[in-house]
Simulated scan of single mutants.
Amino acid sequence: MTLHVAIQEVLKEKARPLRTSEIAGILNENGLYRKGNGSLIKAGQISARINNYPHLFTKLNGVISLKSSTGVPVKKIKKISMRRVMVDTNDNTPVLVEKLMKPKNFNSIPEVENKVPDRPGLYCIRIVNPKSLKPFLTKALLERGHNIIYIGLASKSLKKRFLGQELRAKGHGTFFRSLGAVLGFTPEKGSLVGKKNQNNYKFSKSDEQQIVAWINKNLIVNWVEVIDNLNIIENTLLKEYQPLLNLTGNPGRLIEVKQLRDECKRVARENAKY
């Protein structure tokens, strides 16, 4: 975890402005962030880091507070519910992020399968135990300090895109194809031959069933209903969290994931004419 993220976590937990000396003391005590040489964090280091992130923090008379969870000033919120958020403008982005990303809001897919709405929105997928993935993926998650493996958007229907395509193999969403690839599955040889789209490979029915069973056992999900600015919010989240299996727009995308997807395409295109 980086220092500025650790500072954010402290301010969120305390729910009040703090002096740099207080933040340093809390971090030295809870170990949320440790310096490479093992020495104690000083108030001056906190102050310097705050100055580097003016979009995240406010500093007034030596007291530090959060602007918002994403650096976007909080304005009037139109509608809020405990588990779902409906917004009409980007003004509510901080509320959306908090509701979407809060770990306690996540559930297994079988628990919420019948609750996914036929509405546009954003979704997030976490893995319960990172060690159930291949070692290089487990290592990447540990380095990132979270268990988030995918963040996506549904421009028309969460039920169709998020539940149907990404989690239930009904049309094969990007996440489902990536997950199948990193789990070691490959599509049927030549299955893309003659197809107009040479990227959307599909797994066999039996492999699909195995992947869905793995999803039910190992993943937890959450979503929020959103009307506008889906791409803006998604891009912000991708930059902040760098989910494991996102490729497009993810500054922390893993080349190994792309290589596994490319291998699936190669198998599915075999004998195809270009």
Rank of each mutant, 00 (worst) to 15 (best):
I50K: 15
R34W: 03
S47D: 06
V97H: 05
P103S: 09
A43V: 05
V72A: 00
K42M: 06
K42E: 14
V74H: 00
L96P: 04
I41C: 03
T58G: 14
A48R: 15
V72T: 06
M86F: 09
K78G: 07
N52H: 08
N30H: 14
E29K: 15
K78Q: 07
G31I: 07
S69C: 10
M86S: 04
K42L: 09
L96N: 07
I23L: 11
I23V: 15
K67T: 03
V63E: 13
L32M: 03
V95I: 10
M86L: 07
T70P: 04
V97Y: 03
L40Q: 14
R84I: 05
Y33I: 08
K67F: 05
M82A: 14
M101R: 12
I41S: 05
R84N: 15
D91H: 02
K78H: 05
H55R: 14
M82T: 10
P54A: 13
G31W: 10
Y33L: 11
V97I: 10
I50W: 05
R34Y: 06
G36W: 02
T93A: 14
L66M: 09
L96F: 05
K78L: 07
M86C: 04
I26H: 04
T58D: 13
K67Q: 12
L27K: 01
P54H: 12
V87I: 08
V74Q: 00
M82D: 15
N61H: 09
I64G: 06
N37D: 14
K102Y: 11
G36M: 12
T70D: 10
G25Y: 09
T89R: 01
F106Y: 15
K75C: 10
Y53V: 12
I46V: 14
K75Y: 00
V72M: 04
V74D: 02
T93V: 09
K79S: 03
S68H: 02
R34A: 10
V74S: 11
T70E: 08
I77V: 10
L66F: 05
N37A: 09
Y53M: 09
S39T: 09
G71A: 07
